[in-house]
Design a protein around this nucleic acid. Structure first.
Length: 110
DNA sequence: GCAGTGACTAGTA
DNA sequence: ATACTAGCCACTG
């Protein structure tokens, strides 16, 4: 299993996250068949080329917060993109995983 | 090969 | 609820 295969697997899962929904790093790693690889999911996104049309902004940490180091150019972009999809943040910049977390078992069909 | 690092997490206090 | 710790594992120097 090469690095690019691993990353490609993560991208594959991330592209399935529906509009207006989010998934955690650990969740994506697990769905890709690599439980415990949460950090690598983040790393894969950091290294992802921009031309993949990947909904990277729908990937957040297990606490429902944006994990990009504040001060970076993308931290604020992610929040704006999520809000544009109807996702609301509370006063602590945290969103409700209960409401917005992508559950493929429930969202199947359509 | 070793040591430090990080878009992570689950535990513990 | 918040803060800190210890695992985690690929990447980098």
């Amino acid at each position: 299993m090469s690095r690019s295969d691993l990353y490609a697997r993560f991208y594959e899962i991330i592209q399935k996250i529906p509009y207006g929904r989010v998934a955690t790093y650990g969740q994506i790693a697990e769905m890709a068949g690599f439980p415990g690889y949460a950090r690598q999911v983040g790393y894969a996104l950091n290294a992802s080329p921009g031309d993949l049309d990947l909904p990277w902004h729908r990937v957040i940490n297990a606490r429902g917060m944006i994990s990009i180091k504040s001060g970076g150019p993308y931290a604020n972009v992610q929040r704006l993109l999520l809000e544009a999809e109807g996702i609301e943040f509370d006063q602590k910049n945290r969103l409700s995983l209960k409401k917005y977390r992508w559950d493929p078992e429930i969202s199947r069909g359509s």
